[in-house]
Each structure stands twice: as C-alpha cells, then as structure tokens.
C-alpha cells in the first residue's frame, strides 16, 4: 500500500466514472448498476459514519476512532510505537483531503453531468473529504482546547485564573523579576561608567608614557627604536579595542538580558528558578566587579612604572633654565664689558 492510499484509502481523486479502490473492496466503474449501487451504499455509509462521528475529547481515542473508521488503521501501530506523530499525520491527511477536494471539485465541474445519480455520487465524494477535514480540525482544535483547560487547571495557572494565594505568589514573583531587572540595569550602568573612567585613566597614562618614550629616543637609541614606538602603538590599539569591546558587551547585554528576563513567563517560573536567576545576577556582577578591580590594580602598577621612566622633558626644561641663567649672566657680563669698553673708550 502506497502513502497516498494510506492517507486517503477511499477516495483519492476517485470519481464515479473511474475504477475506485475502496478501503476494502474494489469498485467497478459506475456504468455497472450493481456495483454502482454497492459503491454508493458504501460511500453513503461512510459519509453517515463520518457525520455521526463526535469527538469524545479523549485525544487518543478520537484519533484511533477516526483512523479506523476511515480505513487508515495502518497508522495506529506506527503512532503507538512512536514512529509517527499523531497530530502531524492528522494534519497531513487534512492537507491531502483539501487538495483532493479541490481536484475532485474540478473534475466534476469538467464533467458537468446532469445525471441525478452522478450528481448524488459527486456530492457524496465531495462531502466525505469535507467531513474528514472537519473531523480532523475538531480533533486538533479540541486537543488545543483541552490543553488550554489543562493549563488553566494546573498549579501555575495565569494570574487571573488563580485564587488569592496564587495571585500573591505571582505578585511576589513579578516584584522579584522587576528587582532583578533593576539590578541588571543599574549594574550595567555602573559597569559602563567604570569602564569609561578606567579608559580615561589609561589614556592619560599612555599619553604620559609616549611623551617620555619620545624624549628618550636619543638617550636610549638601542631601546626606544622606531619599532619600539610602533609596537607600543599596536599595544595601545589592542587595549583600546578591548575597552571598546567591554563597553559594547555591557551595553548589548544590558538590553539583551533585560529583554530576555521580561520575556520569561513569570506565572510559569518557579520561586526556585527566580532564586537561581538572582544568584546568576550576583555571579555576573561579581565577575564584572572582580575584573574592574583587577584592571584598576594593573593601572596602578602601570602608573608606578610609567612614573619611573626617566623624564628627560623635565631634565631638558631644567637644562634650559640653567642655560638661560648662564646666558643672562654671560649677557650681563658682555654688557658690562661693553660698558666698561665704552667707558674706557670715552676716557
């Protein structure tokens, strides 16, 4: 038996004018009155069965009854063994019947027979897939309604469906989620401020260091080489990139995590889950704070080493100052000498 026969063992594109393989019997063309009658009875019976079908609300029973009644019992073992999913197979049958119905309708429209017998059969063959589709929909929708009823009956039903105790618990959970979001927001605001402050401090230190290095190039040509300066610039770029990355992490995470927390269905979250989220927030900001402390410690150390770099700028300034004084003295001496010379000249 091929798939189309399983999905629609009775009326896959069948028409009264063609040989139709029924679920159990091979039906001859409708030109033979006996068979025609048999077919019509069978189809009528099937339609009657379908019309009398009422979903019980029991998912498994309804699916089993529908598949058995429509000659698709072959699916049942597969469903029971877990090889196929009952809901998806019902959807597939529904899609198949919808397509068949459309094709069948076109087929009969083309024939457009005025024969009352043909018209009756045509009606039955179009009614069967229609009814099957209705039943499938009622089973699927019925299950959804049943699911909704189960959800509402569960311990963690939506707020409006619960009693005072449930409402209080949900209020408490909502309040805690609100507090968690506040902590995340303020935590990341502070993390962003701190990272910017640390970056400013680093920039100042780097500026001082590069000025010192530049002034030392003549004094320490073997250390402060052009490569050395390029290397320091590269390191600076990497540090700035790490700062930028951290800022982006905080900015992005602030929005992402809050949005994620807000998307959690609070009424279905347990207090234990909220406790866990709370502790995860602690852990996250502990990690961030610990990182900030480490960066600040390293900045302190960096500052102390930069302070120890010889400051030739200062030495040069001092040297200039000494030179200036010497020049002034020499100048005054020269002036004095000149004055002496002038006095001597006029004497």
């Amino acid at each position: 038996m091929n798939l189309s026969e399983i999905k629609n063992p009775d009326i896959s594109l069948q028409s009264p004018e063609t040989s139709i393989k029924h679920a159990d019997i091979e039906v001859a063309p409708t030109s033979q009155p006996e068979t025609h009658f048999a077919l019509e009875n069978t189809a009528s019976e099937r339609l009657e069965n379908l019309n009398s079908f009422q979903p019980s609300g029991d998912n498994e029973k309804d699916i089993e009854a529908f598949l058995t009644m429509t000659g698709r019992g072959i699916y049942l073992d597969e469903i029971k063994s877990g090889n196929i999913d009952s809901t998806s197979i019902l959807s597939e049958i529904k899609d198949f019947q919808t397509n068949s119905l459309s094709a069948e309708s076109k087929f009969h429209k083309v024939l457009d027979s005025k024969d009352p017998e043909f018209q009756n059969k045509s009606r039955i063959y179009q009614e069967i897939p229609k009814r099957e589709i209705e039943i499938i929909e009622s089973i699927l929708n019925g299950n959804a309604q049943e699911d909704q009823m189960i959800i509402k009956a569960s311990d963690e039903r939506p707020l409006e469906e619960q009693g005072d105790e449930g409402s209080r618990e949900n209020q408490e959970k909502n309040e805690r989620i609100r507090q968690i979001n506040e902590r995340i927001e303020s935590g990341f605001i502070s993390a962003k401020e701190n990272i910017l402050a640390m970056e400013r401090r680093y920039d100042e230190l780097f500026g001082t260091a590069t000025e010192k290095f530049s002034s030392l190039s003549e004094r320490f040509p073997s250390i402060i080489t052009p490569d050395f300066i390029t290397n320091i610039d590269q390191k600076n770029k990497m540090v700035k990139s790490a700062y930028a990355k951290m800022f982006v992490i905080y900015k992005k995470s602030d929005e992402q995590l809050q949005s994620m927390i807000q998307s959690l269905p609070v009424e279905y979250l347990s207090i234990e889950q909220i406790d866990l989220i709370d502790r995860s927030v602690d852990k996250l900001f502990d990690t961030i704070t610990s990182g900030e402390e480490k960066i600040n410690d390293k900045l302190d150390y960096l500052e102390s080493t930069i302070q120890r770099i010889p400051d030739l700028r200062k030495a040069t300034e001092e040297s200039f100052e000494v030179q200036d004084i010497k020049s002034e003295i020499e100048e005054s001496d020269l002036v004095g000498n000149k004055n002496d010379r002038e006095i001597n000249l006029h004497q």
């Binding site: 030392l216 402060i224 390191k235 790490a242 390293k298 960096l302 080493t305 770099i309």
Partner: peptide, 21 residues
C-alpha cells in the same frame, strides 16, 4: 631597567584587559 619595566607593564596590562573582556 625602568623603561623595560614600563613596557612590560603595558604588555601585562594589554593581556589582562583582553583576558578580562
């Protein structure tokens, strides 16, 4: 020695901040 220490401190800082990020 001080220059070299400052350079090493930059290296250290660079790897620390990358690691922390």
């Amino acid at each position: 020695k001080n220059i070299r220490e400052a350079v090493a401190a930059f290296d250290d800082f660079m790897s620390t901040i990358s690691e922390i990020s």
